[in-house]
Amino acid sequence: MKTIGLSPRKKIPVYILFIYIVLVALVVLTNYPFLWMITTSLKSRSEVFVFPPKLLPEALVWSNYSEAWNMSAWPRYFTNTLITTIIPTIGQMLFGSLAAYAFTRKFKGSKFLFTLFLGTMMIPSQATLVPNYVILRNLGWINTFKGLTVPFISSSFAVFLLRQYFLTIPKDYEDAAVIDGCGPFHFLFRILIPLSKPALVTVALFSIMERWNDFIWALIMTTKDNMRTVQVGMAVFQSESGTEWTLMMAAATFISLPVIIFFLFVQDKFIEGVMTTGIKA
């Protein structure tokens, strides 16, 4: 194979260099919109309407951020989003573990019930949007945290994933624990759950990303401004501010920044989760 010599001992094949060039190009292409978002958020209003556009602003207009921040009730939106993210995430870990534990045991109708759980993945949430809205409206849950969280406090995905993981833990553990006088819940919470951290982390991360980024459900569940989440807030901000691109980009930046920072910390676990499950989209 043709190589270019760096040192006699270490030779890099040409095709590897080519691959890196393609990858760098892809990364630039993929992330250019983010760069554009950030630089636009720091431009002055008139600069935005100059054609051809320049990437970098002439002077950094930090006031775009405070202006965008003050135009909507962002602190409230962030609080709402945090609540609608945390409650379902805890719920999915807790109730998911409980149900998964039940499904590791054999009981009458367990196969049928488990199939029913799996079957929910075949029914797209978009197809149940209308009836679910009507159900929650009849319950009077519009504009409440109940409406925003309860439908997501468990998911068949979490149950499925945790059950698969629980099954990899030898049955002997439970037998030994029972002989030592350990009850089922004690076993679940003291032994099974601590042993299943990787699966629980995957469930939690998927739930966090999904809830934080959710738009449609939060949109139909909320009519009052003080119940909006950041995604709904952003969409409304966008449709109300016309061509105020600098302010929109400032808002887009402060909305996506927390997610990106959070993601940087958990990316290994999250991507590994995607790679091993491949189910969630």
Binding site: T40, N213, F263, I271
Partner: peptide, 20 residues
């Protein structure tokens, strides 16, 4: 990581950036 960033961005934010 860099190629995965759009995946974790919310669709609303993505759509606003691209609209621009």
């Amino acid at each position: 990581l860099m190629l995965f960033l759009p995946v974790i961005t919310s669709m609303v934010v993505a759509a606003v950036i691209w609209k621009w």
